[in-house]
Computed example of a mutant assay.
Amino acid sequence: MSRPADGGTPPPELELPSDFPGLGEDDGNGPFIDHHEVRNVIKALRTSLGALRGETVPNMSATWTGPGTVNQVSYEGNVGPEEAGQWEAASAFGNNIHFAYNAFDPSYALLIEHVEKWANAVEQAIANYERFHQDSSA
């Protein structure tokens, strides 16, 4: 594996398990990819992302949209010295939790955003492949 031109860390090699959804046998030119199955995987992924975003959870308040959602992390994770206590150990613990929250909270939402962008890119790649395959077969 080669390093990127900017000298950064090379991307990790990715080996998908042979039973990965949508991945078929390798005919020497690469594995067969079942586009319908890949779309089903993306649909399931988006359903999971919706649960993390906190989309339309029935019988929940606006500030509590379910466990593990971005809103829950933002609401319950914002703890600092004031909440932990003013004595030295508690205050230091509160500072550590607040520091972790400030690093994690935006990253959590950003992860969801990047996964959605990845899903869009995979769908577009499939659409492009199918369109060009159809055009070249006509």
Rank of each mutant, 00 (worst) to 15 (best):
T69M: 08
D26A: 01
F93E: 04
S91E: 11
W64T: 07
N40M: 14
G77C: 03
A44P: 00
Q72M: 11
T65D: 04
A84L: 08
E88V: 12
A84E: 05
G94L: 02
V73Q: 11
T56S: 15
G28F: 03
D27E: 14
G77W: 02
V41N: 04
G85F: 00
L23Q: 05
W64V: 06
T65W: 04
A44V: 05
G54M: 05
E76D: 09
G28Q: 03
R39Y: 09
E83V: 08
P81F: 00
V70D: 08
G68Q: 04
E88D: 14
D34F: 03
T63V: 10
A84C: 09
S74R: 15
E55I: 10
W87S: 13
V41M: 08
G77I: 02
G94K: 03
L49D: 07
K43Y: 15
G50Y: 02
V38M: 09
Y101P: 07
V73W: 13
G94N: 05
I42F: 08
S48C: 12
L23V: 15
Q86R: 11
P31S: 10
E88M: 10
H98W: 09
S61K: 07
E88R: 10
L49R: 06
V38N: 07
R53I: 03
G54S: 01
W87Y: 11
V79K: 14
Y75N: 12
L45V: 07
V41C: 07
N96K: 12
N71A: 13
I97Y: 12
P67T: 13
R39C: 03
R53D: 10
H36M: 02
G66N: 03
W64K: 11
Q72R: 08
G24F: 00
P31L: 02
T69E: 05
A51F: 02
R46A: 00
N29A: 09
P81V: 00
D34W: 04
G28W: 01
R53M: 05
N71M: 09
G77P: 08
I97R: 14
E25F: 06
G24Q: 00
L52D: 06
R53T: 08
A44Q: 12
V73E: 07
V38K: 08
L52S: 10
P58H: 00
P58I: 03
K43N: 12
F99M: 14
G24V: 00
N40L: 14
E37I: 13
T65K: 15
G80S: 03
A51W: 02
E37G: 07
F93C: 04
Y101C: 03
G54C: 04
R39N: 12
L23A: 01
V73M: 15
T56M: 13
F32Q: 15
W64S: 10
